[in-house]
Amino acid sequence: MTLAGVVGSAVAVFHGILMQRMMIRPIERALAGTPTSAGIRRLVSPLLHLSTIAWLAGGLALIAVGSGWAPPFRLPVALVVGAFYFHAMVLNCWATRGRHPGWMLMAAALLLILIGA
């Protein structure tokens, strides 16, 4: 489970960096010249980073239960984080038609969760 957490956390951090560079900055530049309210512009980044935050939190939870910090929560953490990672894997594979390494990394983390659970 610890290795699954490391993989998931690393994917989350890398995903956050790429998301900021390749999606959020261009969207913010595009919205700058429109009559969009300031509140909506402030929401773009946090909403797009929601998956990054969930994957990172899940990875840290996997590391915690895999390291023996919270043994009674091993199965619930595996189920919840596994559901997040499964969702990410399926949608990433579908959206990119399998040409993006993210779905493969999430599949590897999911396999490690299954082995560790």
Rank of each mutant, 00 (worst) to 15 (best):
T34W: 01
A61K: 01
L110Y: 12
A117S: 15
A109T: 14
Y85C: 03
C93F: 13
A78H: 03
L50K: 09
A70V: 13
L47C: 05
L3G: 04
R29P: 00
W94V: 15
R99H: 11
A108V: 15
G102F: 12
A117R: 12
S9A: 13
M89L: 13
P101R: 08
G16I: 11
I17E: 12
H15Y: 13
G68Y: 05
T36D: 03
L91Y: 11
I17G: 13
P72K: 02
T36A: 15
L43D: 07
F86G: 15
A4R: 09
A54T: 08
G68W: 04
V81I: 08
G33K: 07
L18Q: 15
A61E: 04
R21S: 09
G82N: 10
L110S: 14
A88V: 09
M106P: 00
R29L: 07
F86M: 12
A30G: 10
M1S: 01
V81T: 05
S9W: 01
L62S: 00
V44C: 06
L91K: 07
G16E: 08
A70K: 02
A30W: 07
S9C: 06
A88M: 14
P26Y: 06
T34R: 14
V7A: 07
A10H: 00
L48T: 09
L47N: 09
A117Y: 05
P46G: 14
P46R: 14
S37G: 15
L43R: 07
A38I: 09
M104R: 14
M19E: 11
G5A: 01
F14C: 10
L3H: 05
I17C: 08
R74I: 05
G8M: 06
I24H: 03
L91N: 13
P101V: 11
M19C: 04
